[in-house]
Write a protein that binds this DNA or RNA. Structure first.
Length: 787
DNA sequence: GAGCACTGC
């Protein structure tokens, strides 16, 4: 039933049938948990994770008695496709079928599907959103914009779009920040609707468009919807756009919301007041951000639906931790000894801390008292190879307890089942772009209150849980309410180009949900101008149109265009594709580091000389010389590169080739061999790789330098480098093949400041190229030499 | 002289 709250535009739908889950023992202090509120932080004054917890009677670790109801009303796939696939799936013939994991059984007939849907209907009826649908749907139907606050487990992402399918005129798009979520939701809603995915309900994510002319409801990544918008700026085939997870405030979600604001005005012109709008937007978000979205959309009504979460008791430290790893290790031991069964999830900021904590816990685990369960520490971060990531899902023997030590990846992207305890360092790492300096910094910073709530919520998905915060409650109270939106701390060259593509002249005065600020915008405009993407009146050029179309960062897109002129397009596509895949080169364990470094330089004679970009080309060529997948896998393992990563390189390469072709690239799709590119040119440095192909190293690197001229540095006598732009000190990152080598000048794809300024993906360049490509940098170069 | 959080096209 709906009940009115103080703010008259806010309507709360409270499900009166909601009950405390049956397995939650009622002995929790009454004032400790108020079921109907978020952020009811319980302050336990005991100094440490306490042992007074035997009130719980949950003896079965998996706690399968309870229906696992994840946020979207169901479970199954917890990881994105990069990680759920085990290696063997790649041995299948069709390289594009690797999303099979998400496909339904296409042998099911329509009536089988309808039967299945009828079964699922019984489960849907238990979801909080379902119970209040007759109140909510009419509210949504009459408004052009609705802000819907659905707590975790309310079922909003599946049910609201489903209910709207029969009500709205045209198609519905539901955006998601992540690919997995889009695919999973489509799967689930198709089942609930009684169709195959791709019929009435489908999805669209990069590399996979599972939709048809029948598709009425489409789950789509926000990046894909923006891409559709570049082609059809009015989104004319949709009558309804649902922006889900809006509180995550990714750059793409923020952009989309800005575009939707303009589109609402445009498409609802002439609609009489009170009549059903032509175009409708529903923003789904977490509580704290609701007002912001509402005021952005002219005080749009806020609807609130309660979730289905179990209570989580929260504990704080009574003094600040001085060594976070040490404090975490001690807390794990205490929780293990003092608490009932259930797995532990710990949050630390980064890989280095996590590896250290795992190592310590692994070493002391056998020494711990035998009365407590045996702890099994497991790391979790994005750069971890998929097989190791999968270990967090494997069941353990009895009397063992998983201790998963994770980065922020477990806060939203990965849901680990069986977690009953969360230990939170309160820290995360964040990349902050400094546009004045033209570099990124990677900082360890305190999380926000919203983030702390989300982390602790990970303990309350299957039964009641506990969260131990490794900081003081007074420090908690000092945290910001919500995490700063990404757009305020990122490079926004690509977003600005998208605005230009859509004809926005006044970038500074656009409908920014969060205005990134004049400095950041002006710096983006300048960079786009120097790339040639904008002309001097600020309009997008034909080169800019090409850049915005290509599915890579603007600088890399410019490199691709240049490579075409330099007759090295194929090689540059290979390299750009490699650069588009994260964690392609894995960090070998320290004991194998020297061996693997040698192996890499032996395999890449040209890369050893010319740097990482050429090395990527050589590695990719070697990868492709193997006939059998088993051979490939073995080679990848030996040289410590990601097999999955290279498969993704091939997909991206194919996509880039298609785009380049659509932009008028003349080349023949089926690779002209490099030998045909051979030109008898004394100025050009032609190299032969161990796979016996000939690579025009100079032309490739000059193509890159065209896009990355500002990312170059001059070698100093003391083996350090100074950037050409402002003479800053920069070091070659230890992961580079050029680490420790002296070169006259270098060019790098990325500059990140951690403990010091590091250049990543480094290539050796000739000094004269700098003058050739950008004479204006010459003066600063001489300044640097004197410095 | 020694190491990067997460996501999207």
């Amino acid at each position: 039933m709906g009940r009115r709250q103080k703010q008259n535009k806010k309507i709360v739908f409270s499900d009166t049938e909601y009950e405390t889950p049956s397995n939650v023992n009622e002995n929790i202090d009454n004032n400790s948990v108020k079921n109907n509120e978020i952020n009811n932080d319980y302050n336990d004054n005991s100094e440490r994770p306490s042992k007074r917890s035997k009130k719980y009677n949950d003896n079965n670790t998996g706690s399968t008695e309870n229906k696992v109801t994840t946020e979207n009303g169901y479970k199954t796939v917890y990881f994105d496709d990069k990680s759920t696939e085990n290696d063997d799936e790649y041995t299948k013939e069709n390289p594009d079928s690797d999303d099979e994991f998400f496909q339904q059984d296409y042998n099911m007939t329509r009536s089988d599907l309808k039967n299945k849907a009828a079964e699922l209907y019984e489960i849907r009826k238990t979801l909080p959103v379902f119970k209040v649908k007759d109140d909510i749907i009419p509210q949504i139907m009459k408004e052009p914009v609705t802000i819907l606050i659905g707590e975790t487990g309310s079922g909003k992402s599946t049910q609201i779009p489903h209910f709207l399918m029969d009500k709205v005129k045209k198609n519905i798009a539901v955006t998601q920040p992540r690919r997995v979520a889009a695919m999973n939701l489509a799967m689930r809603v198709a089942e609930e609707y009684g169709c195959h995915v791709g019929e009435e309900v489908g999805y669209s994510v990069r590399f996979n468009n599972v939709t048809s002319s029948r598709t009425k409801l489409k789950y789509i990544t926000d990046g894909m919807l923006l891409r559709e918008m570049m082609v059809d700026p009015k989104l004319s085939k949709y009558s309804t756009i649902v922006v889900d997870e809006a509180h995550e405030r990714t750059i793409l979600t923020d952009l989309l919301i800005g575009f939707l604001k303009g589109l609402l005005i445009e498409r609802n012109q002439g609609v009489a007041a009170g009549a059903e709008p032509n175009f409708k937007v529903i923003i789904m978000s977490a509580t704290l951000d609701a007002e912001k979205f509402s005021s952005f959309f002219d005080n749009a009504p806020i609807l609130f639906v309660e979730g289905k979460m179990y209570p989580v008791e929260r504990f704080y430290m009574n003094k600040a931790a001085d060594d976070i790893i040490d404090t975490l290790v001690k807390s794990v031991i205490q929780v293990n000894q003092g608490e009932q069964s259930g797995d532990i999830l710990c949050f630390l900021p980064g890989q280095e801390d996590i590896d250290k904590a795992v190592e310590i816990l692994t070493n002391i685990s056998p020494e711990l008292p035998k009365e407590a369960p045996m702890i099994v520490p497991l790391p979790l971060y994005a750069a971890l190879p998929p097989q190791q990531q999968m270990k967090i899902f494997a069941p353990l023997k009895s009397r063992q307890r998983k201790v998963i030590i994770s980065t922020n990846i477990a806060e939203t992207s990965v849901t680990v089942p069986g977690i009953k305890y969360v230990i939170d360092s309160g820290l995360r790492k964040v990349k902050v772009w400094r546009h004045q300096l033209g570099l990124s910094t990677l900082l360890t910073v305190p999380i926000s209150k919203a983030s702390a709530t989300q982390r602790s919520g990970r303990a309350g998905r299957e039964s009641s849980g506990k969260c131990f915060r490794l900081y003081k409650e007074t420090d908690y109270l000092k945290l910001t309410d919500i995490t700063e939106p990404e757009i305020l701390r990122s490079e926004i060259i690509s977003p600005v180009l998208m605005l230009k593509k859509l004809g926005v002249d006044d970038i500074l005065g656009w409908y920014w949900l969060e205005n990134p600020g004049k400095e950041s915008l002006v710096s983006s405009l300048q960079q786009l101008y120097s790339l040639g993407a904008l002309n001097n009146s600020g309009k997008i050029t034909s080169l800019g149109e090409k850049i915005v179309t290509l599915p890579v960062a603007p600088h890399l897109a410019a490199v691709l265009i240049k490579a075409q002129e330099n007759n090295v397009l194929n090689d540059v596509i290979d390299i750009v594709s490699c650069l588009s895949v994260d964690n392609l080169l894995m960090n070998p364990p320290s004991e194998k580091r020297d061996e693997i470094n040698h192996l890499r330089s032996d395999s890449c004679p040209l890369g050893t000389n010319h740097g990482d970009l050429i090395m990527l080309k050589e590695l990719y060529d070697i990868f492709n010389t193997f006939k059998e997948n088993d051979e490939r896998k073995k080679w990848c393992k030996d040289i410590s590169v990601s097999y999955k990563g290279f498969k993704n390189v091939s997909r991206i390469r194919k996509q880039i080739k298609e785009y380049m072709h659509s932009l008028g690239s003349e080349y023949d799709d089926d690779d002209i061999e490099n030998e045909n590119d051979f030109r008898d040119d004394n100025n050009t440095n032609m190299g032969r790789t161990i796979t016996n192909s000939i690579i025009d190293v100079d032309s490739i690197l000059k193509s890159f330098l065209y896009g990355f001229i500002a990312n170059s540095a001059i070698g100093m006598p003391d083996r350090s480098y100074r950037t050409v732009t402002n003479g800053n000190l920069i070091s070659v990152h230890p992961s580079s093949l050029l680490f420790g080598k002296k070169k006259d000048a270098i060019m790098y794809i990325e500059f990140v400041y951690t403990v010091k300024g590091y250049a990543r993906n480094v290539s050796a360049i000739k000094l004269e190229w700098l003058q050739e490509i950008a004479p204006q940098f010459q003066s600063s170069k001489t300044n640097v030499s004197k410095a």
